[in-house]
């Protein structure tokens, strides 16, 4: 099989959410190789891990992401594609550890203090993990100090803040100020029903996103 054939196949199985040979979905691919088997074989054929990631897996995530944007797929499709990608990534893990390929990045994520809502935050986590990000989820009701501690041990990480209440969104300003004071280069992104682009500018955050997918899409283009 030619290199571009197997990479194209990887792209296809990720987009379709075919995790491995044994997974029942998609029904018309029953018994066929999935992302796990194809990634293993690609490595056997000497394709570099970076090429597998950049030219095989990530384009598959982009395809399903675009379908989602057009209303032709649902979040479940994206998450199953993310599982397929993660199955392939298991074979690439040793190369991350050795530094031969670089991970997409690290995201420190949490719902700000006083707020217990977490579905939006969890969606961001699941989608970005699918895109190859390492996600450090601090949970809900997270203080500025907890965000600062996490950033202190992951200096290159970006930060995602979530809030769903008018009485907690102001805490995003405090967290942003604390993090920027510690390191002005730390990028802070916000999301949640009551916040907006103008609020983002007001508190000095680096970006506001209405939904997890647009956040992920923006990071892919970064």
């Amino acid at each position: 099989m030619m290199i571009h054939d197997i990479l194209a196949q990887l792209t296809q199985v990720v987009a379709l959410g075919k995790i491995n040979k044994n997974t029942p979905l998609p029904a018309d691919m029953l018994g066929q190789d999935g992302a796990s088997e194809l990634a293993f074989r690609a490595l056997e054929q000497g394709i570099t891990p970076q090429a597998i990631l950049n030219d095989g897996l990530l384009p598959g995530m982009s395809i399903i992401g675009e379908k989602f944007s057009r209303g032709e797929a649902f979040i479940a499709n994206m998450l199953i594609s993310a599982q397929a990608m993660n199955a392939a990534m298991e074979h690439l893990k040793p190369y991350f550890a050795s530094g031969e390929i670089k991970s997409t990045g690290t995201l420190v994520l949490g719902t700000v203090q006083g707020d217990l809502h977490d579905i939006g935050k969890n969606l961001v986590k699941m989608i970005l993990k699918g895109d190859g990000w390492e996600v450090i989820d601090l949970g809900t009701n997270v203080s500025s100090e907890a965000f600062l501690n996490a950033i202190s041990s992951h200096s290159d990480a970006i930060v995602g803040l979530s809030a769903l209440l008018t009485t907690t969104m102001l805490n995003m300003g405090e967290v942003t100020e604390t993090l920027k004071k510690h390191n002005p280069e730390t990028r802070v992104y916000i999301g949640g029903a009551p916040v907006s682009q103008s609020f983002c500018q007001e508190i000095g955050a680096d970006g506001y996103f209405r939904d997890p997918h647009s956040f992920a899409k923006s990071l892919r283009l970064d």
């Binding site: 008018t166 009485t167 969104m169």
Partner: peptide, 8 residues
């Protein structure tokens, strides 16, 4: 009802 933007 709920509060406007205000820390508690």
């Amino acid at each position: 009802f709920t509060l406007p933007t205000l820390l508690i």
